[in-house]
Write a protein that binds this DNA or RNA. Structure first.
Lengths: 103, 103
DNA sequence: AATATATATAAAGAATTTCTTATATAAAAG
DNA sequence: CTTTTATATAAGAAATTCTTTATATATATT
């Protein structure tokens, strides 16, 4: 059930096509943090933040990092950071993606 | 009512986050054509094709071109071609976009 | 012990997007 | 003059996405 490139691209674009998710990536780019702190900072309910983060993580746009410097003595918390992704899109790239496999 | 960069980016990403619209751009990149021909080629109803094209045109992702070589003697028809856009997106760019205006 | 921090998920409702059907117009070809 | 090519839009249905509310669990601080 290997997914084609076009489907994958559409999923990635959908994940990015949302102001909350973009602001999440921006915030985590400034400083990695965990879901709860991010939710509070952004004025979102935790379940909503969790849902958006889940979507971003699923597509590999953010990842869990193991912070060497534990912020406090408090233990279980997943710290998120943006993945080092780069998306470049122009008409030729789109044509290539749509035509994949036919090669 | 000038729209901020983040809103504009989200709109562009939404416009691109759809398989039909991506295939449209790909098809027009291979060869510019008008809406009716594109709809037939892609197996879409004309109203649906028109709707998607309208969205792409509104965001400047495709444009009407005036073809020097009229395909046939048939006159009124808008020929579409992808605009020469390039979207580059990575965590830093997203951070910049989210932070616009604060500069 | 109670409160704040922290995670996770499901269910229901709200909002948005997508798609079809219908309608209208007009010119060229057969 | 009927069919094919061509454009444009509106209304409603269908599907998807987004958001809230509720529930459950567990540790740390006060």
């Amino acid at each position: 059930m290997s997914e084609d490139e076009l489907t994958k691209l559409v999923k990635t674009l959908k994940a990015l096509a949302n102001p909350i998710r973009l602001r999440m990536i921006a915030s985590l780019a400034e400083e990695p943090k965990h879901a709860y702190a991010l939710a509070k900072e952004m004025g979102l309910s935790y379940p909503l933040a969790h849902l958006h983060l889940k979507g971003l993580r699923k597509l590999g746009l953010i990842e869990e990092i193991t912070p060497e410097t534990k912020t406090e003595g408090r233990p279980p918390s997943k710290t998120y950071s943006p993945s080092d992704f780069e998306l470049v899109l122009n008409p030729s790239k789109i044509l290539e993606t749509v035509k994949e496999g036919i090669v």
